[in-house]
Design a binder for these strands. Sequence first.
DNA 1: CTGTTTGCCTATAAGGCATAGGTAGATGCA
DNA 2: TGCATCTACCTATGCCTTATAGGCAAACAG
Lengths: 189, 189
Amino acid sequence: MVRVGLTPERLTLAGAELADEAGFGEVTLSALARRFGVKPASLYAHVKNSHDLKTRIALFALEELADRVADAVAGRAGKDALTAFANAYRDYARAHPGRYEAARYRLDPQTAAASAGVRHAQMTRAILRGYELAEPDQTHAVRMLGSVFHGYASLEAAGGFDHTDIAAQQSWAWTLDCLDTALRSRSAS
Amino acid sequence: MVRVGLTPERLTLAGAELADEAGFGEVTLSALARRFGVKPASLYAHVKNSHDLKTRIALFALEELADRVADAVAGRAGKDALTAFANAYRDYARAHPGRYEAARYRLDPQTAAASAGVRHAQMTRAILRGYELAEPDQTHAVRMLGSVFHGYASLEAAGGFDHTDIAAQQSWAWTLDCLDTALRSRSAS
DNA sequence: CTGTTTGCCTATAAGGCATAGGTAGATGCA
DNA sequence: TGCATCTACCTATGCCTTATAGGCAAACAG
């Protein structure tokens, strides 16, 4: 009986890696146990159950994502901040598809309220400071930006942009340009 | 042994209903068999396997969605068409969350090419006729619209807009207004 | 170096997917 | 009307994943 040194943290990280390799849907206690050369039942000493494991991976991914976005927008404003935010977001989704999927795992309200998702939302509001939008326009804009970013990452990951030769990168730049124009035109009203 | 009269069509429809009630992830052969008062093994005479069932539900949902959108945009142009398209899309996602989820089920390329998803894409291009965009701008716009619509429906379904008091309906109208402005500003260049 | 903690184990059970092979109800044809 | 065939649904079985209960030995504290 060799002790492998399992901890909730190691399981979470390994689960995140597994998600990136095979998809978040393939993250099972059995698969994770195989990865560690251990029996599935052994994992229950470190995580409560399958849902608990997935929640931990989701929180981990949200934290990572918020960190990257925070790093990207630091010291930037206006369109510069918008682009940096958007790129950090999309880059994360592309580099870590499984973790990005995990970040969208449905959390119960209190867990969500204590997650890095809150920080993420605050940063979205922060980049809008450059556009001087009053409420309720600011909330509308937060929702629109969230929709575009998530929608684009989601469709791109699903291969929805593979049919046409035009590079996804170009459409992304075009879209950000569009959003900047639209937001600036709203800052007047 | 009472014959219930199973057919692939009835299974697909029942699966779609089950998806709307409990989520697409809960659509299993076992659950569907229970719904018909039949043993799981009996379903294999009508659908190849679980993946086949899900694919059928996905194709069914794509068909329904394309029908509604086609109905909405018929005889409309410009912002009117854009709004009608967007509302038909969002309304479907809200009325049939499980089917909407199913419509995003990953299909293999040939199945996707023969699905109503193609019709859907064509209609997106059609509503852009009113904005007179040349390629590659048109493709960029198709991708942006797809991202916003899917992103908004997805975030709304996940309860992402429940934290703030401002109604999701208002943000939706604001977003469509924004998109119209942005697209019109591009039609010049 | 001994006692306690705890990390990983085996055993077990329920539920989902899937296949093989059997039986009875429906259908076709005389 | 009666028989043969077809086929819709069945039981039996096996594997996989989740989950719980209880056991043993490695690691650690004193």
